[in-house]
Simulated scan of single mutants.
Amino acid sequence: MERTVGAATTPTPELVPATSPGALAAGPFPAAEVAVLLDGVPRQRGWGALPAPRASRPALRVRPWRLLPTPTGAPVTFAYTAVLALTSLFAVYAGPGLLHAVYQDSSTDVAHLLRTPVFVLLASALWVAGGLLSPYALAFVLVLTALERRIGGARTILVFLTGHVLATLATEVPVGLAVLVGHLPDSSLHRLDYGISFGVAASIGALSGLLTPWLRWPLLAVVGYSLVTDLIAFEDPMTNWGHLISLGIGTTLWPVVRRWYREQARAGASGTTTTAP
């Protein structure tokens, strides 16, 4: 076999298998010929080589502390919870006469709504009926924290106050009209009506619109069943109707809170903060 280089021809040494007796006598192979031979040899892994690990899915990180408000994660809910804690401590240690007077001045009954509507609507939301161990206090912390982390603090308070104010008016205005036409006595204009329950029920309804269906509908079913059961018991029908009304108000806010949630997500992705409702 010959190879042509320029105008001259030189004999090409015959390739001798490395395992043949004449392999050493033939001398070392040219680099090009060795490369040709190695191209057909399958590459082998070393003794210590191991298969590359498959890319695993990131582990699901459970962070239960995110259920609670923090000064950085949910500052508005954190501050509101601190205020409710203080008023609850006041309710525990204040004298009965002083406590009744404060409750009466904060009540959203018809008489106070006619005289100082803005004051009593805000003041009544500073008290927890039943104290910090009541179900509505626990729901307040969990629900408002979850809502604030999704739509922001200012919008969460707006949802809360919307349910609190509208449900209060929806239950107290009919009482005033009934007294006006003589169906109820004048004493119905003066009653104790305070607490965060209307705002919490509205917040539950709004938050359910941001959850996946397998969480949304069981939540609404459980809360709705509990409220209807209280209404059937007929112990405080006006308040019970207010809870159902405020829950319905929260569900009507689904389109709004979903739009706010998308805006909040976009703002978080771009590194900006959205505060305007």
Rank of each mutant, 00 (worst) to 15 (best):
L67I: 04
W127L: 04
T275N: 13
T9D: 09
P30V: 11
V179Y: 02
V141C: 01
A137T: 00
T162S: 14
G40N: 07
V41K: 01
V257P: 01
V257I: 07
V128A: 09
D109M: 00
V179L: 02
S270G: 11
L231A: 05
R115C: 02
G248I: 02
Y80H: 08
I232W: 08
A201T: 07
P71T: 05
G163E: 02
Y225G: 14
V62D: 11
A101Y: 04
R259K: 14
I151C: 01
L161Q: 06
G242P: 02
A233H: 15
L169E: 08
R266E: 15
L121P: 06
A49Q: 15
L50A: 14
V223W: 07
T87E: 08
G242C: 10
H190A: 01
W127F: 15
L84E: 05
T87G: 02
Y136H: 09
A35S: 12
A265N: 10
A233Q: 14
G130V: 02
L215I: 04
A221M: 05
L231S: 04
L132I: 15
A8R: 15
T229I: 07
G224A: 10
T70C: 08
L121H: 07
V102P: 04
R149V: 10
W217R: 13
L192K: 01
G182E: 02
A123F: 04
D230L: 15
L211I: 04
T168P: 04
W127Q: 00
S203F: 04
G242F: 01
E14I: 14
A111S: 06
I232Y: 05
A23C: 10
A154M: 10
V223P: 08
V165R: 05
V120I: 03
V143L: 03
L166G: 01
P21C: 10
A18T: 12
E148C: 08
